[in-house]
């Protein structure tokens, strides 16, 4: 940023929106260098997925898989990782389970958080602040504090080896409510709400007709992040799932990390991680369409 601000001359023509070529090149240079910095480990993961087990252990960096093998992918789908490690959960099944966890968690969470965020942002009622602070406070406890009672609750409910522990508790994410509330309060003018009230709209009606159409960008952000959190969840899935049929992708890939007792299978792990990111990238692109501007200004003019 320092380079950028220095590069833009103070005498820039008023209202001009085009950057001079020199500073534009500088901006691109910084953006691309950052891009490489952020992309590098992902790239390393992709090439590792085409290399043998110990290739990641290699001290000499390679920028292209050498030797190039595809057996990590076939091993992943056959479940026969090496003669001694035969995985009991089919990878396809784990992908399905992860998808079920992520969708079943994200869609209701978006509905709940936007509704609650709207009520907190635009309605005043007794206890509003207290309730909102209650939401905030639970955000602040580390999971290690609550994992034992969480497990106890799930096993008393008979929810071990079901999706419920990974769905219902996460329909009420505190940070989601917080983010929704911040966005709605800042960007939806009260005039819109008041006008709807004058027209006799109910609270649910206002939410449906005014709020929902205007919160596309933040729903996209929350949707992406929530989906990815759910997709990547390890801690909670690990304690509630034992049945091979209920194992999710992070649990399955963890079998290859070898940090506890077995030899790491980094190649297969990288292959699994690469496949596991494909749905995430799809979700990213799908939701990113909602991040494209223009929604707000149109609504206000109307």
């Amino acid at each position: 940023m320092a380079e950028m601000s220095a590069a833009i001359p103070q005498s820039q023509v008023v209202g001009q929106s085009r950057m001079p070529a020199f500073s534009r090149i500088l901006v691109y240079l910084v953006l691309i260098m950052l891009g490489i910095f952020f992309m590098f480990p992902f790239y390393a993961m992709v090439i590792a997925s085409f290399m043998p087990r110990n290739a990641l252990n290699s001290i000499t960096p390679t920028l292209w898989p050498n030797p190039f093998i595809t057996s990590n992918y076939t091993a992943l789908f056959s479940g026969e990782i090496n003669p001694d490690l035969i995985v009991k959960t089919p990878f396809i099944r784990a992908l399905f389970n992860s998808l079920a966890v992520a969708i079943g968690q994200t869609v209701p969470a978006l509905l709940f958080t936007s509704l609650v965020g709207f009520v907190f942002a635009k309605r005043r009622f007794p206890g509003r602040n207290i309730l909102f602070y209650c939401v905030l406070v639970t955000m602040m406890l580390p999971y290690q504090s609550t994992i034992v009672p969480f497990f106890l609750l799930m096993s008393r409910l008979g929810w071990i080896n079901t999706f419920w522990p990974l769905w219902i508790p996460w329909w009420a994410p505190a940070w989601g409510v917080f983010l929704m509330r911040q966005f709605i309060a800042a960007t939806i003018p009260d005039e819109l709400i008041d006008a709807a009230a004058i027209d006799g709209a109910s609270l649910l009606g206002m939410y449906w007709r005014i709020v929902l159409p205007l919160i596309g960008p933040i729903t996209a952000v929350l949707g992406i992040l929530n989906f990815m959190n759910a997709w990547n969840d390890f801690i909670y899935s690990n304690i509630v799932m034992n049945d091979p049929n209920m194992v999710t992708v992070p649990l399955l890939l963890n079998l290859f990390k070898g940090a506890t007792l077995t030899v790491p299978e980094y190649g297969v792990m990288a292959a699994g991680s690469v496949i596991a990111t494909i749905p995430l990238i799809i979700v990213f692109f799908v939701f990113q369409r909602w991040l494209i501007g223009g929604i707000m200004s149109g609504a206000i003019k109307a």
Binding site: V87, N238, I239, N242
Partner: peptide
């Protein structure tokens, strides 16, 4: 035989809850 890599925290959690251990 259930394949679980990070079984230590999981086992301790189940023992602490008094239910669900193998």
């Amino acid at each position: 035989w259930q394949q679980i890599e990070d079984h230590a925290a999981k086992f301790k959690t189940a023992m602490a809850a008094g239910t669900g251990a193998p």
